[in-house]
Design a binder for these strands. Structure first.
Lengths: 218, 218
DNA sequence: ACGACTTTGGATCGCCGATCCAACCATGGC
DNA sequence: GCCATGGTTGGATCGGCGATCCAAAGTCGT
């Protein structure tokens, strides 16, 4: 005989609640049971506004990405703007790792469309020839998606099991250092850099490598 | 009172059966129930050899990647070898999309270690300076992972719901073409290229962009 | 040949996404 | 002013999942 809600339950409210659950407890925390509890409602009410769980995840992701891309101020320099957009995406995914996992899983959705549009337009402004534009945008977006997925995976590891990032990196670096230098010369050699590296800086270094490659094609 | 198996059930056999299930029916087809049926055994027997489902997926992925990287013949030219390795990974992920999804989800596993090692060693042979080696390898690997994830996602879309690739691409391209050119100038413009593009060729174009960028750093 | 240890098969648990339906309530025709 | 109608809501329920647990069956050392 619980009382009925009077404040309209809307798709918007549900998506927002879903995003909060995801931020708080990771991807595993988003369940319809948890949603009914948080929203003090039942399954039927939620399913009335949302098709299924994929729909919900995708909608939440679209929201976050749209916020990032509309929030970025496009300066006069396309090169600088590209780096800003890329960093904005990185930071958003860093703050909401579930977005990263979702992006590298559901293609052809509004979020990805917006990312392609922003990236492609800036590459065009940069003077990339028509011929190479499509491939270049695809490559850059895929790089961002790759980093996004790895970031999300790392966040999952750190969320439960591992103490802090520094200690975890040190552990993996130690494993790399202990590998046979004859069989794994590269990994063995760069283990120190792994321990000391900064994800954000390395991400930007990758963007710059890509931009240099684009410039070479121009 | 079913008879007991006499051919030793081993981790190897289980991982192989898991890979077959994944190849046949996608990621959703890998369940312990399906495994018990296919192997004519029970849950206990499987859990005796395998820690959990993640362990199983990771082991199957490691197998596929190891096969690719050991199978690639390294020619004299490091540049050509890098492209060969990248294409080998692309083809393997194309043939087993679940590998792509897994790679962009579980970091610090043997499969990714092997990929880093192969990539890094070849970049080193290419003459990339010590300073840039770590970042360059990271960028290239992340690009491959990004494509891997998208490929896996596309395969999932095509596996159920959509008829064939050409028709699906045409549909998405049509949606892109119908977007407002004022709001989505880039996406609108390249919609034709989307319809006509070849995934494999575009992947290789992206690899070349990165290699050009890395050469610029040299 | 007997006991300790390993391996196997299946019953069972708790949780999940999804479906379904009865109760509820705002709105509009009369 | 009242009741029929159709868009909402809450919760019982279903089948399937990963995981745990245990008794039975095999294996091996002594």
């Amino acid at each position: 005989m619980a009382k009925r809600r009077t404040d309209g339950l809307s798709r918007e409210v549900i998506v927002k609640a879903a995003a909060e659950l995801l931020d708080d407890g990771g991807e595993a925390a988003l369940t319809f049971r948890a949603l009914t509890t948080r929203l003090s409602t039942g399954y039927g009410a939620i399913y009335h506004h949302v098709a299924n769980k994929s729909d919900l995840l995708a909608a939440a992701t679209d929201d976050v990405i749209a916020d990032v891309l509309t929030g970025v101020v496009v300066t006069g320099d396309p090169l600088e703007a590209l780096r800003t957009v890329a960093l904005g995406l990185f930071d958003a995914i860093d703050a909401h790792p579930w977005v990263g996992a979702q992006l590298s899983r559901e293609p052809w959705r509004p979020a990805l469309l917006e990312i392609y549009e922003s990236t492609g337009r800036l590459l065009d402004a940069l003077g990339v020839p028509e011929q190479a534009l499509f491939d270049a945008a695809g490559a850059l977006v895929n790089y961002v998606l790759g980093v996004a997925g790895q970031n999300a995976a790392n966040a999952r590891v750190l969320a439960f099991g591992e103490a802090d990032r520094t200690a975890f990196l040190a552990k993996v670096a130690a494993q790399w250092a202990e590998l046979d230098p004859a069989r794994y010369p590269f990994v063995h050699r760069v283990s120190t850099r792994l321990r000391e590296h900064d994800d954000r800086a390395q991400f930007l270094a990758g963007v710059d490598i890509f931009l240099a490659g684009i410039a070479a094609l121009r």
